[in-house]
């Protein structure tokens, strides 16, 4: 039995009221969306806010809509289940729909939100534990302590970015809309990340993520998501691979992007993916050879830490396999890729 530490619940009915609460209580307040990340973390006393501010009663934060000029707006409170099932998202951003559909299990996708998944806390076997457990080991670098149990003598936290939607949004060049005391701020999702597991996102505590915006894609857009995990539900990714391919009218690749997650504190872009795939027709042996070149590059870049479940060597060995398979799935207009 895991009891929550005491807090008060506030349910503002407008964005301004929510921002006022965040301004009033500062670091003592935490925002709750679906609760699937915050509530277990509160039960583990990783975060102990005095005030929990729910966004559930602010209707404009929910739903998928047209943002003009072919852009799609996804409210931050849209559930992952709704993102995965939305016809416009599936057509315009298949990798995102697939990634959202592979997060955890059905109940958690019903509860969990897109905004919550983007802003998911990093994960580590030495961090996501009860207070009792962590205290027994003298705590860790990310919370309450000074010692890293993963990297001997490590001075920087290596807890892993574990959000499935983040790499997909990065390949799609999504933009995030934050609202804070200074007004609206629009930032490319690439600029959100810091390479520090203790706090891997540039987001102030008095700001709210209100919207994710997706740029238009053409008929030649292909995307897929691959997820390595030990069972078909609930698990966080042991490895996540998002791919994007743009084809011209003759089926030749004009642009490509591959982003990996669950390897280190932030999602990682595979270098030279576009260069290696450019000008190749997205079928047959030439494509397979190019996809393998990208897979080899991903393998060179990937150094998974032994701080999330699953043997680190196995996770590293699966990086090129999942990159190749997910590129092939994207080329075929298929996906997602997951073995279980």
């Amino acid at each position: 039995m895991l009891r929550l530490p005491k807090f008060e619940v506030r349910t503002p009915e407008s964005l301004d009221a929510a921002l006022a609460l965040l301004a009033e209580f500062g670091p003592d307040a935490r925002v709750i969306a679906g609760g699937t990340d915050l509530v277990p973390n509160m039960k583990h006393e990783l975060v102990t806010p005095r005030i929990v501010v729910s966004l559930a009663r602010i209707p404009e934060l929910r739903g998928v809509g047209d943002a003009g000029a072919g852009w799609l707006r996804l409210g931050a409170m849209t559930s992952l289940a709704d993102v995965a099932a939305d016809a416009r998202v599936r057509a315009q951003a298949p990798a995102l729909a697939q990634a959202a559909g592979l997060v955890a299990g059905p109940q958690l996708r019903t509860m969990g939100t897109l905004g919550g998944n983007v802003l998911l806390d990093t994960r580590c076997q030495w961090y996501n534990q009860t207070y009792f457990w962590r205290e027994a080991l003298g705590f860790c670098l990310k919370k309450d302590g000074t010692l890293c149990h993963v990297v001997e003598g490590g001075s920087k936290c290596v807890a892993a970015a574990s959000n499935d939607t983040a790499p997909a949004l990065m390949t799609l060049r999504a933009e995030l809309v934050f609202v804070g005391p200074q007004g609206r701020r629009v930032t490319p999702i690439d600029d959100l990340w810091l390479a520090d597991g203790a706090a891997n996102k540039k987001c102030a505590s008095d700001e709210l993520l209100v919207e994710v915006r997706l740029p238009p894609t053409g008929p030649g857009h292909r995307g897929a998501y691959g997820k390595l995990r030990e069972r078909a539900s609930i698990d966080f990714p042991l490895l996540g691979v998002a791919t994007r391919i743009e084809l011209d009218a003759r089926g030749t690749i004009t642009d490509a992007d591959v982003v990996l997650t669950a390897l280190q504190a932030r999602p990682v872009r595979v270098k030279r993916a576009a260069e290696l795939l450019l000008g190749v027709r997205a079928e047959g042996d030439a494509f397979l050879a190019a996809a393998r070149a990208v897979a080899d590059q991903a393998h060179r870049q990937a150094h998974p830490m032994p701080n999330i479940p699953g043997d680190a060597e196995w996770r590293r060995a699966m990086v090129p396999v999942y990159v190749r398979r997910t590129l092939e799935a994207a080329a075929r207009g298929a996906g997602p890729v997951h073995a279980v």
Binding site: G35, V39, T110, M111
Partner: peptide, 8 residues
Amino acid sequence: PVLACLTL
């Protein structure tokens, strides 16, 4: 379906 243990 939701998880009552994570729902306030």
